[in-house]
């Protein structure tokens, strides 16, 4: 474990908590893409199946359980509890166009052709594009509540910090995982446009308004 990965995980944890609190406190999921949250639930389910087979550490196990639980709780809040506030009209990204390529790519490029490994690889590829429905929704509505942009900033930072962790691990432990690294870079690059808007606007107290 290193400081980059720890802060990355904490940023990830913070993002999930911000989102849960926003939906719970405002009793509304307006502006939130339920499709991205479904993709995240799929990402954690397919990645953390090894919860039952390999024990890495108490930290690792606890975080996996929290990410699994919170992702399903978020999907439940959006599609069941606060269904009336879910914005169907703007959450229209076709997620099958993200899932299918991830499945095909995971079958073609992986570390080992075993069920657990293929599912892990699928989860890595899917996570790199899972935020697209949310970013697409923000571009369609042309704006995002500041709490939603804080959520996106924390979520985008987590994988960016993981890139620093991978550099650190390569330098210190000569350990690297190209699949995770390439997908992580793609994932972080997808946020760049948002990061620019967040830093130039939201941090100056303005609302996140995308040029129409």
């Amino acid at each position: 474990m290193n400081i980059f990965r720890l802060t990355g995980d904490l940023a990830h944890l913070l993002a999930i908590i911000i989102l849960l609190l926003k939906i719970w406190k405002t009793r509304s999921c307006a502006g939130i893409s339920g499709k991205s949250q479904i993709l995240f639930a799929i990402v954690y389910t397919t990645r953390y199946l090894d919860l039952v087979t390999t024990y890495v550490s108490a930290y690792n196990t606890l975080m996996k359980i929290f990410f699994l639980g919170s992702s399903f709780a978020t999907v439940y809040l959006i599609y069941v509890k606060f269904k009336a506030t879910y914005d169907h009209n703007h959450d229209t990204f076709r997620i099958e166009f993200l899932i299918l390529p991830a499945v095909i790519l995971a079958l073609l490029i992986n570390h080992a052709f075993t069920p657990l490994e293929i599912l892990w690889t699928f989860s890595i590829y899917l996570e790199s594009v899972a935020i697209l429905p949310q970013l697409f929704m923000v571009s369609k509505t042309g704006e995002a509540e500041s709490i939603t942009s804080h959520y996106l900033f924390a979520l985008g930072s987590y994988r960016g910090l993981y890139i620093l962790n991978w550099i650190y691990r390569y330098a210190m432990e000569s350990h690297y995982d190209l699949i995770a690294i390439v997908a992580g870079i793609v994932q972080t690059v997808l946020y760049c446009d948002f990061f620019y808007l967040y830093i130039t606007k939201v941090l100056k107290g303005k609302k996140l308004q995308l040029p129409a």
């Binding site: 995980d9 990830h12 690792n60 975080m63 570390h111 657990l116 993981y162 995982d177």
Partner: peptide, 10 residues
Amino acid sequence: YVARPVHDEL
């Protein structure tokens, strides 16, 4: 036999 790399990251 390719040892399955243990994924120790989240």
